[in-house]
Amino acid sequence: MANLQDLTEAVIKGDEDKIKLTILELLNAGTPAKEIMDDGLIAGMNIVGGKMETEEMFIPEVLMSAKAMSAGVEILKPQLTDEENAASGTMILGTVQGDLHDIGKNLVKMLMEGAGFSVIDLGTDVPPAAFVDAIKEHNADIVAMSALLTTTMPKMKETMEAMENAGIRDQVKVLVGGAPVTENYADEIGADGYGYDAGSAVRIAKEYMTN
């Protein structure tokens, strides 16, 4: 008989088949979908996150777990109420205008998706207005901006101003990151948070969703 512990371990191993099978067994046995999600999948991903921060697990392994977990979430989704589904959150993500660095941003995207967020990726060289439009269109919870150049960091501020002007600043949490960005800079431009790597980005985004 499958239990939640098996599911957690399958997430850590990134074993997609095992995850799907275990979820079906658990659902058949009458385990509530919400419990499978929280105490099986998310619990597993939390352990993966921890192992990533202590450098026990490498990024490709983490991504494998994240991908496997997403496959599990797909099965669970129809079983969850709208309210339960919404809890995971929608994130708008992009590298700011003038900046083409996207490796860090892509890592953030993949880990966010692994953590159950739905991520709208606007790509690189994203003008402030495009962020604003996307927030409106997708009714986003979080906006995440990446910048790798001191010359493009000011675009983060401009994007904040554009959100302000469009009257949507208070609807979203703003998260910033990238090598030259600092906690101080995030404070200075009035962003809600700063993440020094993709793992911390996930941690902070999750905090926003639980509060």
């Binding site: 450098e55 490498f58 790597d197």
Partner: peptide
């Protein structure tokens, strides 16, 4: 390469 433990190049 990208260091797959720390994401540093």
């Amino acid at each position: 390469m990208l260091d797959m433990r720390t994401t540093i190049q």
